[in-house]
Design a protein around this nucleic acid. Structure first.
Length: 105
DNA sequence: AACGTGACACAGC
DNA sequence: AGCTGTGCCACGT
């Protein structure tokens, strides 16, 4: 498990996501300088410790791809509590709530 | 060390 | 406009 450097980077980015905001795998990967490594971002979130609000990380379409791990209802509830709206596992106004890590870093 | 897999992304049809 | 196929990078076995 020593080879988790990439994971840590992802964790930090996701942890920096402000409340009521969301991000995408590609954006995070891009912020890490690993363009195209979107998959690994999800991979990292798969090991997501409790400190990482992975429910704020969606795919390019704003779809809650990770509902399978958190529980579709669980993730939806968390997002709604953040003031977001989830419709059919898809975040409404996703672009509006989109938070670019590279923009903050 | 190599192959296969994977919470994605983009291009082409 | 929607679907299928391929590519990317890193981890797991």
């Amino acid at each position: 498990m020593s080879s988790g450097d990439f994971f840590q980077d992802v964790f930090e980015i996701v942890r920096l996501i402000p409340n009521g905001r969301v991000s995408t795998y590609g954006a995070i990967a891009n912020a890490l300088g690993k363009i195209g490594a979107a998959r690994q971002v999800g991979y990292a979130l798969n090991n997501c410790p409790s400190d990482v609000p992975a429910h704020r990380v969606l795919n390019r379409k704003g779809v809650l791809s990770g509902k399978h791990f958190f529980g579709e209802e669980r993730m939806k509830e968390l997002l709604e509590l953040e003031g977001l709206k989830v419709e059919n596992d898809v975040l409404v106004n996703f672009e509006k709530y989109f938070w670019d890590p590279s923009n903050e870093l």
